[in-house]
């Protein structure tokens, strides 16, 4: 049996609801619509996303798992990995069918796999908090483009809003073509036109006149704080994987 859903988290949660309504006897494979290829031998069922149903499932999960538990599910969803939808689906069913505490059964495959995927997403979120380098633009805005492996922008909002409360900033995902903009009051989702979809702004007249000074001071600082006698390249590339170097002012 195949359940087809619309790619959204709500759709996925609705699918869990539908499963409990129907309790199909055989194992259910869950497939996002854009990946579905009809197949003559397996029956399929199209899940119609329904926020009321999704909400009931979400509340039920929250009750059983608490905040850390549902955050784990949300992180896994944001990983956008194909296999993760099945893991989330199986995990939810497993949780509702067992007594409290069962989410800690790391001997169970979906439990462990969700935990590990969520950890990867949290790690990338943490890396973004570390490696984002804002450039100050001529109009006083702090800008940074990113292209993370996972869709972590929703996880970044709180951190940046709390910390950079008195400056306007934009964090833009150039891979997924959307970003967030903080206007000193609230954070809103934005879409920029394609011509300015950049990790860094290179056009000098778009930048604040002191931007270069501080970028250079930072590079100087980075080089000076290094102790040559202790050089350890292996450890270094493990801590700052090469794919993030392009973000880093000090590495440019």
């Amino acid at each position: 049996m195949i359940y087809i859903f619309d790619n959204s988290l709500e759709g996925l949660l609705t699918a869990v609801f539908e499963w409990f309504e129907r309790k199909p006897p055989s194992k259910v494979a869950i497939v996002p619509k854009n990946n579905y290829q009809p197949n003559a031998f397996t029956k399929s069922f199209e899940v119609l996303t329904d926020s009321a149903k999704a909400n009931r499932v979400w509340k039920g999960l929250a009750q059983r798992l608490g905040r850390p538990g549902i955050r784990k599910i949300y992180c896994c969803y944001l990983s956008e990995r194909l296999e993760v939808y099945q893991d989330i689906f199986d995990f939810c069913i497993y949780i509702f069918q067992h007594q409290a505490g069962t989410e800690k059964n790391y001997g169970n495959a979906p439990v462990l796999s969700l935990t590990q995927t969520a950890r990867k997403v949290e790690r990338e979120k943490h890396r973004m908090e570390a490696f984002i380098r804002f450039q100050k633009t001529a109009d006083g805005m702090f800008y940074c483009g990113i292209d993370p492996d996972f869709n972590v922008i929703p996880l970044l909002i709180n951190h940046f809003k709390n910390r950079y409360a008195n400056q306007q900033w934009v964090i833009y995902d150039i891979k997924r073509h959307y970003g967030i903009f903080y206007n000193l009051q609230t954070v809103a989702e934005i879409k920029l036109d394609n011509t300015i979809n950049l990790l860094k702004k290179t056009n000098q007249h778009l930048l604040d006149e002191q931007e270069n000074l501080y970028a250079n001071l930072w590079k100087d600082y980075f080089n000076r704080t290094n102790i040559v006698a202790r050089k350890n390249t292996k450890l270094h590339t493990q801590q700052v994987p090469k794919r993030y170097w392009k973000y880093l002012t000090e590495k440019l």
């Binding site: 709390n162 400056q167 202790r230 270094h236 801590q239 700052v240």
Partner: peptide
Amino acid sequence: KNTKGGLGNGHQSGICHTYTEDGRCVSLLK
């Protein structure tokens, strides 16, 4: 915590913003 209209806050586990080539965390302007 950040104050109203202020800049910055603490992070419970800290953040390493970059690493020197000798593998040490760079978190603070030292």
